[in-house]
Structure formats: structure tokens, C-alpha cells
Design a protein around this nucleic acid. Structure first.
Length: 733
DNA sequence: CACTCAGGGCCAACT
DNA sequence: AGTTGGCCCTGAGTG
């Protein structure tokens, strides 16, 4: 519109310049210039539009170029990402392949392990026959060494120690050249212990030396770092002694034990700083020179177990001063010298296996003093078992039951209420041991006192322990017609042995018949289970026994009088005992503790304390006492189980010959004793339609007064009235 | 009173 | 930064 007006205005301006022309022409003239203008206008408009188009073209060209560039870049990125993805994919594929391989390898290993275990089982079974012979040989060797050690001890007591030691040295021969150390210059033939534990004379060591290093000729261990020159130059006091905790070189007595500097420092810091470690695994970590830093808890526990005493770390942190165990150190040195002199000359008695393990672990240093082949006395056997199983279970704590005894034992530190260790203990041990053990306890010295140990373990009750072959014999000779009947017959047979054995015990024999019967009622099945457990630990029993018709029963079933529900628990107990080194002394203690059941009377308790006293000096592992309690518990439940059979499975009960079985007589007496009824029995009695006589069986003395005939009438009623004393009477007669 | 030796401290090396 | 372990110092006990 504006443009049109302008055109019109222009046209009207043009008209003013052409006034003299005619009207028509004037009209034509006024129309012609407006068209030209219009064309001009259109042209200029066209130009403008063309400009705009050019601009737009340039813009679009620019955009196209930009987009092309971006496309290229995106394509590049996409390529890169794809490459990355492919790499990742390849990695994942490789990992997957490796995992598959690992899986296959593990499967293979599992198969190998299974077949190995089968082989072991087979070997164990076939080995049983040879064991007796081996045991006899070992017994003979033990006797020879017992005599030799006793002779030497006698000599040591009666003569000058150094002269005697020289004489003993004179008997020793070099393991390599087999020449004695007698009548030769000391420098030339003086005996040396190599770091691996073997002994050779200095002359041989010089010959073995290559580039200043020694290669052991016996186990061919790699050249030792110890240089010959150094060996000659340095003559450390504890040369050849190995730290019982980590196997490193001993530097002296530290906190009660000959240990290395490292273990000394570790123990000191741990106690001083009141540190509380917890094992991340199962408290059975390997502790040796290379692994000692791995688990502080196990290292500390092993130190305690080896006899390091927390109370030897000074509260006042003052330097110097001799510690309070000096008398013990002196005695220990004496014993070490004697045992070392004794153990050095005849290394060929040691099996290659033993040597290897000793060298390989480097931690069972105690075998240096308590060589398995040189067990001479029961005391030595204790030390031996202590050192061997301790490698598996370093968690040793004093038994709460033993505390009153421990505190009165020589070399054990009495508990003092003001002791600085009270707190440490509360943190360290009681928390790990039992929340229900309130009394703070002091660590005990694990070194046994020979006198106490010998006193108990050479007593009549230990001397009359059943032979290892008793249980296998009983199991093999009984006719096996029914599983439950078989178990009860085994119990009957073993009960005779148990009673005969119990009567040998000084404490037991002092008791009145009434008390003897009570004790037997309580303890016989525990003892029976202990016997079978011991046989199983020894490996003298077949795991399964055939009961006609191809039916098989496990040993656990037999031990628990047919109580199948508890067999797996019993199996666990066998495995645990085997792992922690259950030996014949523990077996003896288990039997005695079972027989002298707590809470009967003062005499029994005193006898029990005596047993615990001796045991506490060699065993402070609570695992043993825990297992003992578990066995007692199994016995208690099994008694209730058998007694319940008459209601739950009368047909089975009838097969057990309840009228003639002495074992069942005791089962009844135990199961029906007032105040000792188990929940199972109560349940049975509530539910049973049939009522039974649950009168407590009376001893002979009482029966005699009342004039009962007892045990002659036959049938269930007769059974119920049969006096338990008959068990003792009949067996003792 | 000199000597011994076990417990403590120090600090470089190690983890 | 915390721990370890080898070396040295200290001082009670001993002959």
C-alpha cells in the first residue's frame, strides 16, 4: 500500500511537467510513466529477492558443510566406540574362557580329591591290620628310650652336668662322616646343628661349604644363608635353637620361652598396648617365619600356648632386671641340654617324612626336644602331643574348671586381683572363651611339671586302661542279627570292661557300693561312647558293620545305642578329636572325668580335681573339655532314647533282651532317677498308654535289709525291680 | 662388684 | 601411618 501510494505520488508529480499536451495524450502520458516505474520497482524488488536467495544459498551451503563435518566426526566416534566395545567383548570372552578352564580344573581337582580320599580310606582300612605290629614296635622303641633317658637322668642327678654332657657328646657321631666327636680337637670335630636341624661336625661342614654357604647333605636343602666363617666366628648361646612360635633363630628367653627377637617384640607390644586381635579365619592360621605377619591373633595365641607369659611383661615398663621365672629357665635349660644330647646322635631313627615336615614347616621346633621317635616317658608323650597338635589349634585358653587348680600349680602364676592383666584378660580371653566365665584368669605356663603328670598318668587307673583292641574285638565277635540289639550287646560287653577298670581306681574303690553304683549309672554310657570314639579316632574300627540281609549300621549308631539322630554329631566329634590330636592320655582323662562325675561327693570331687590337675599341665585347650561335655550330652540323650524305645518301638525293645541286659538295667536306673528325667522321657510317659514302674533301683545293701530276692522272677516287672548293684556284683564275681 | 641376661626402648625397614 | 624386627641399653639377680 505504501509503495502504491508512492507510485501514485510520483505519477502525480510527473503530470505537472507535461501540462501543454492534449487531454488524451495527457491521459496516455500520465499512464505510461507509472508502468515504467512499476517495472523499475519490480526490477529492484527482483534484485532484492536475488540477494536474499544468494544469502540463503550461502547459509545453506555453510550448514551443509557443518553438518557434513559433524557427520564425519560422529562416524569417527561411532567407529571408536565400536572398537572399544569389541575390545571389551574380547576381554569378556577371554575371561569367560578362563573361568570355564578354572571351573574344569576345579572339577578335576575335586575328582582327584575324592579319589584320593577314597584311597586314603581304603589305605586306612587295610592299614589297620598292620597297625598292631607297628604299635608293638613303637612300644619297644619307646621302652628302650625310656630306659636310656632314665639312666641319663639318674646320671645327671648324681654327677657333674658338664662332665656328663662331655661324655654324652663323646658318644655322638657326625651324621655325615659317622665319626664320633670323642678324642678329637674341639674345633675340628665339634658338633654343629645346621639350620635345617641336621647335625654334622665342623670338618664336614667346611667340606660342604660352597662359596661360603652350606648345602645340607641329608635333605639337600638349598644352600643355607649361614656362612661357615660366621658359624665359627659367632658362637651364639642358643645356636641351632628354633623359635617354637615362628621357627626363626632363638635369641634368648623372652617372657618364659626361648624365642626369636621378632616374637619377643611382637609379644611385648601386644601385651603393653593391650591389643585385641581376632582371627579372620578359623584360629588355626599357619605361623612360621614367612607367615607370622599374616595373622596376629594366631601368632599371639601360639605364643601364649607355647608358654609366653603376659605377666612377664613389666607393668612399670622399667628396663632391666631379671624376671621371676629364673628358676624355671634354669630347669628348662637343664632339660633341654639332656634331651638335646639324647636326641642328636641317632637321627636315622627319624623317618624321612618326619624330617621333611620338620624342615618344611620350620615351626614345630619343639620336635627338636620332643622327637616323636624318642618318646620315653608319658611325660614326654605329653610334650610331644602338645607340640604336634598345637600347630593346628593355636587357640589355647585355660579351662575355667581348672582355674582353682592352676593357680596352685608350681610354675603357674597365682591370680592377683590387682593384676594389671585382669583387664587384658577380660578383653583377650574371656570374651573369646565364655561370657559366663566371670573370674579373671591368668595365663598358665604350658610347661608341664613332670612330677604331677607322672603321678597321675602312672597311677593304676591309667595303667589299667583298656587295650586298643578291646572295642574292635567286641564289635567283631558279637553275632549281628538286629541293629539295636547289636548296639546294646556291644554296650553290655564293654560295660564289663568299664566296671573292672573303674574298680582299679583308688577314688572309686574307696566309695561305698551305693556311691559306686550311682557313679556307674551316670557315667557308664559316656565312658562307652568315649571308648568307641577313641577306637574310631585311632582308626581301628570299620565305619560300617553288616547286620544280616545286607543292612549296615554305622559305628556312631552302635556307640549311641541306636540313636541315629545324633550320629552326625558324633561323627563331627570324631573328626574334631582326630584333628586336635586326641591321644591316649586324653582318652584316659576323658574316661576318668566321666567316671568321677562332678557333684556326687567330696571324695569323687577330690579325685576329679586330681585328674584335672594333671591334665591342666599339659592341656589347656578348651576344645577338649567342650567335646567331653558334648559326649556326655550325647550319652544322656541316648539313654533317654533307649528307654523310650519300649513305648515308641516295643518290637525293637523286645529284641534288646531287657531282662538280661546289664546295660539296659543301668539305662533304666539312669532314665528313671528322680530329678534327672529328660524331656523326652516325660513326653513318652505322658503319651504312653502303658504305665511303667519308674521306681529307682536300690543297691544291695538296701535290698538286703528289706529282704528282696531281686532279679529272679523274670519279665518286665522283674526287670524293674532288679537291683542295679547286681551289675557290679555279677561282674566283680 | 663384675658379670649375666631378660625386659624395654629405639629406629630403620617394611607393609 | 602403622608395624616389624634387629640392635642396644638398663638394671636386678648372681656368684
Amino acid at each position: 500500500m505504501v509503495r502504491n501510494k508512492a507510485i501514485v505520488a510520483k505519477r502525480s508529480g510527473d503530470n505537472s511537467t507535461s501540462q501543454p499536451m492534449s487531454k488524451k495524450r495527457k491521459v496516455q502520458q500520465t499512464q505510461q510513466p507509472s508502468k515504467t516505474d512499476e517495472v523499475e520497482t519490480l526490477r529492484s524488488e527482483l534484485k532484492q529477492l536475488e540477494n536474499e536467495r544468494r544469502k540463503m544459498e550461502e547459509y545453506f551451503a555453510k550448514e551443509v558443510r557443518r553438518l557434513k563435518r559433524e557427520t564425519i566426526r560422529y562416524e569417527k566416534d561411532a567407529d571408536h566406540h565400536e572398537e572399544q566395545l569389541q575390545i571389551t567383548l574380547r576381554d569378556v570372552e577371554t575371561e569367560l574362557r578362563e573361568m570355564k578352564k578354572e571351573n574344569e580344573r576345579m572339577k578335576l581337582e575335586e575328582k582327584e580329591h575324592e579319589s584320593f580320599m577314597k584311597l586314603v580310606e581304603k589305605a586306612r582300612e587295610t592299614d589297620i591290620a598292620d597297625k598292631e605290629e607297628v604299635f608293638q614296635n613303637e612300644e619297644k622303641i619307646s621302652q628302650i628310650y625310656a630306659e636310656r633317658i632314665n639312666d641319663l637322668k639318674q646320671k645327671m642327678k648324681s654327677t657333674d652336668l658338664t662332665t656328663e654332657a662331655d661324655e654324652i657328646v663323646a658318644e655322638i657321631v657326625c651324621e655325615r662322616c659317622q665319626k664320633g666327636f670323642k678324642n678329637v680337637a674341639k674345633d675340628e670335630k665339634s658338633p654343629k646343628i645346621l639350620p635345617c636341624g641336621h647335625t654334622a661336625c665342623m670338618a664336614c661342614i667346611k667340606e660342604l661349604c660352597v662359596d661360603g654357604h652350606i648345602r645340607c647333605p641329608f635333605d639337600r636343602s638349598p644352600p643355607q644363608s649361614t656362612k661357615v666363617d660366621e658359624m665359627e666366628a659367632k658362637k651364639p648361646k642358643y645356636e641351632g635353637e628354633i623359635c617354637p612360635i615362628c621357627g626363626d633363630q632363638v635369641s634368648g628367653y623372652h617372657y618364659g620361652v626361648l624365642t626369636c627377637e621378632s616374637c619377643k617384640g611382637f609379644f611385648k607390644r601386644t601385651v603393653q598396648d593391650r591389643k585385641h586381635f581376632r582371627c579372620a579365619l578359623q584360629a588355626n592360621c599357619r605361623v612360621d617365619q614367612s607367615f607370622r605377619k599374616r595373622c596376629k591373633s594366631c601368632r599371639f595365641q601360639k605364643g601364649l600356648m607355647m608358654g609366653m607369659k603376659m605377666e612377664a611383661v613389666r607393668e612399670d615398663k622399667k628396663r632391666g632386671g631379671k624376671n621371676k621365672f629364673n628358676s624355671y629357665y634354669m630347669m628348662d635349660r637343664k632339660e633341654r641340654l639332656a634331651l638335646r644330647m639324647e636326641s642328636q646322635p641317632e637321627p636315622h631313627f627319624m623317618s624321612a617324612g618326619n624330617q621333611d615336615s620338620r624342615v618344611a614347616t620350620g615351626q614345630n621346633a619343639q620336635t627338636q626336644y620332643h622327637d616323636p621317635t624318642k618318646i620315653t616317658t608319658e611325660y614326654d608323650a605329653h610334650l610331644q602331643s602338645l607340640s604336634s597338635h598345637s600347630l593346628l589349634y593355636p587357640t589355647y585358653y585355660p579351662l575355667p574348671e581348672m582355674m582353682p587348680i592352676i593357680t596352685n600349680t608350681p610354675f603357674l602364676v597365682p591370680y592377683s586381683p590387682s593384676s594389671k592383666y585382669q583387664n587384658i584378660y577380660l578383653g583377650f580371653q574371656i570374651s573369646q572363651f565364655s561370657a559366663s566365665t566371670p573370674s579373671p584368669i591368668l595365663p598358665l605356663c604350658s610347661t608341664p611339671t613332670e612330677r604331677t603328670v607322672n603321678q597321675f598318668f602312672s597311677s593304676s587307673i591309667c595303667k589299667t586302661m583298656p587295650d586298643d583292641s578291646v572295642i574292635p574285638l567286641i564289635l567283631s565277635r558279637i553275632v549281628k542279627s538286629d541293629a539295636h540289639a547289636f548296639a546294646v550287646q556291644v554296650a553290655d560287653e564293654n560295660l564289663r570292661e568299664i566296671v573292672n577298670w573303674a574298680k582299679q581306681d583308688e577314688t572309686f574303690s574307696k566309695l561305698e557300693l551305693n556311691d559306686q553304683i550311682k557313679l556307674l549309672q551316670t557315667s557308664w554310657l559316656t565312658i562307652h561312647i568315649i571308648d568307641i570314639t577313641n577306637a574310631m579316632v585311632l582308626g581301628t574300627l570299620h565305619p560300617q558293620y553288616n547286620i544280616g540281609d545286607g543292612e549296615e549300621v554305622s559305628v556312631g549308631f552302635i556307640a549311641l545305642l541306636g540313636n541315629q539322630n545324633l550320629v552326625s554329631s558324633w561323627d563331627d566329634i570324631v573328626i574334631r578329636l582326630r584333628n586336635i590330636g586326641f591321644n591316649k592320655h586324653d582318652y584316659c582323662v576323658f574316661r576318668c572325668l566321666a567316671l568321677l562325675d562332678e557333684g556326687h561327693n567330696a571324695t569323687v570331687n577330690a579325685g576329679r580335681s586330681q585328674v584335672l590337675h594333671a591334665w591342666s599341665e599339659v592341656r589347656s585347650n578348651t576344645a577338649f573339655l567342650e567335646i567331653f561335655d558334648q559326649i556326655r550330652h550325647l550319652a544322656s540323650i541316648s539313654i533317654q532314647y533307649v528307654w523310650g524305645l519300649q513305648h515308641t518301638r516295643p518290637s525293637v525293645w523286645a529284641l534288646l533282651n531287657p531282662t538280661t541286659s546289664a546295660a539296659l538295667e543301668l539305662v533304666k536306673a539312669n532314665a528313671t532317677r528322680s530329678g534327672k528325667r529328660g524331656a523326652y522321657e516325660q513326653m513318652i510317659q505322658r503319651g504312653a498308654a502303658r504305665t511303667t514302674d519308674t521306681t529307682t533301683v536300690e543297691p544291695t545293701a538296701v535290698r538286703g535289709q528289706r529282704g528282696d530276692s531281686g532279679g529272679t522272677q523274670g519279665g518286665a516287672e522283674v526287670y524293674n525291680n532288679r537291683p542295679t548293684s547286681a551289675v557290679i556284683e555279677s561282674i566283680s564275681d
